[in-house]
Amino acid sequence: MFERIVEIYPELLTALGQTFTMIAVAIPLAIAGGTPLGILLYLWGPDGLSPRPKVHKVLDTAVNIARSFPFLILLIAIIPFTRLLVGTTIGTAAVIVPLTINAVPYFARFVEQNLTQLGQGTVEAALAMGAKHRQVISHVLLVDAIPALVGSVTIMTVSFISYSAMAGLVGGGGIGDFAIRYGYYRYETPLMVLAILLMIALVSLVQVSGSRLSRALDKR
């Protein structure tokens, strides 16, 4: 068994690198796209600074639909768009596209919830001092919500590590692809177990690191 692990070690290392690349690209893109979308959901919501019920309802419905779309179906459904964007439908680059599209509304909902839960006291104080809505969002709400947002990023990252493993079903690379090729197609169960253990270790590392960072940033 040890000899076999040594033999496939380069491929295992490549699979880990592919999984890391998927997450390292998709999560920052999701944060960049989901943060302004979540701010708009909060801003135009019933408890927001500029309630717009009709616009909020349309945006809220769109986010709900996007979040409820099963990742594997989304991955297949947007194949033409993925090919147009990155020039291929297989491999790590191709998987990043549906991962990001799925993650943006996912994180947007987290942002909306985190901002809503802060309460109105600080917002009212800032408005009374003459702060504009943009200043309230950037200098008050987002600053206070940083610990919660870090926790949300942690949860999202853990979820999308699992999603990245699904990409192995369509040749997307990563740990999931490694487990399928060796553990399923070649019936090398020990290698599948090894892949599972690596996924558990990766998820645990992200969860522990994210939780510690969130607590360190929480000054309350």
Rank of each mutant, 00 (worst) to 15 (best):
G173E: 07
I180R: 11
Y163R: 13
Y185M: 14
I180T: 03
G172D: 01
D177A: 05
M166R: 06
M156C: 07
F178R: 05
F160I: 06
Y182W: 14
Y182Q: 12
A167T: 06
R186Y: 12
Y185S: 14
G172C: 01
G168Y: 00
A167I: 07
M156S: 03
L169V: 14
M156H: 04
D177S: 08
S164K: 04
T157K: 12
I180S: 05
I161V: 15
Y182D: 08
A165W: 03
V158K: 06
M156T: 00
G174R: 02
V170M: 12
I161M: 14
R181V: 08
V170L: 15
I180H: 11
F160P: 02
Y163L: 15
I155C: 01
G173S: 09
V170D: 10
G174E: 02
G176V: 03
I161F: 05
Y184R: 14
M156W: 06
T154N: 12
G176W: 01
L169E: 13
T154K: 10
T157Q: 13
G168F: 05
G183F: 07
G172A: 08
G174K: 06
F160Y: 10
G168D: 07
I161P: 02
S159H: 09
G172Y: 07
Y185A: 13
Y182K: 11
T157F: 07
R181L: 14
I155Q: 11
Y185L: 15
F178G: 01
G173L: 00
S164D: 01
G172F: 04
D177P: 04
G173K: 03
A179D: 04
Y182M: 10
D177W: 01
Y185I: 15
G171E: 09
I155T: 11
Y163E: 13
L169M: 15
T154D: 10
G183Q: 09
S162P: 07
D177V: 00
A167L: 01
V158R: 10
I155G: 04
V158L: 10
I175S: 03
T154F: 06
F160K: 03
I161W: 02
D177N: 12
Y184N: 13
F178M: 09
Y185Q: 15
V170E: 11
G172L: 02
I180P: 06
G171P: 05
S164R: 03
I161H: 02
R186Q: 15
M166C: 13
G168M: 02
Y182A: 02
G172W: 05
Y182H: 15
R186M: 13
M166F: 10
I155F: 06
